[in-house]
Amino acid sequence: MERTTMDLWVGIFAVAGAAALFGLALKVGNLTSSSVGETYTVTAAFENIGGLKPRAPVKSAGVVVGRVDNIQFDSKTFEANVTLKVDKRYPFPKDTFANIYTAGLLGEQYVGLEAGGDEQSLKDGDKISHTQDAVVLEKMISQFLYNKASESGDSKKAE
């Protein structure tokens, strides 16, 4: 085997391998959609985030517009401070609502943004003041059962 042919093959191999890695990162993975594109950071405080995790999607009208960057517990307010990284291409009004939703009945949780009507847009470092907590299934069920129980109790008394 000539050394030059060998070098050529190894070169082809290295380029193909690197291309495959890039392909995986760009075409298969999400490197294009969130990690590389420019983002701005906003924070939102929630009383209960349920099962929200870092890197969960941030969606608006069903479209992924960013990712959850960081979640921290604030020991003064006893709330969860959630940092969101939102794509620069999507500005949101100052009075945007941030809700925590669940995809499907038992799916992953994500942050949903609902645009308000303010003229001014959220800037890097701003805080979203209108938030709505995650719906915790256990709470809902116990509330439902409690309501049912009290309902039937009331109807019994009425008789």
Binding site: A25, K27, V28, G29, L31, S33, P57, V64
Partner: peptide
């Protein structure tokens, strides 16, 4: 096929 893949394959955690 591609968009679901891209939404769920994470660069750091998976690749």
């Amino acid at each position: 096929f591609w968009s679901q893949m891209q939404a769920n394959v994470d660069f750091q955690a998976d690749i």
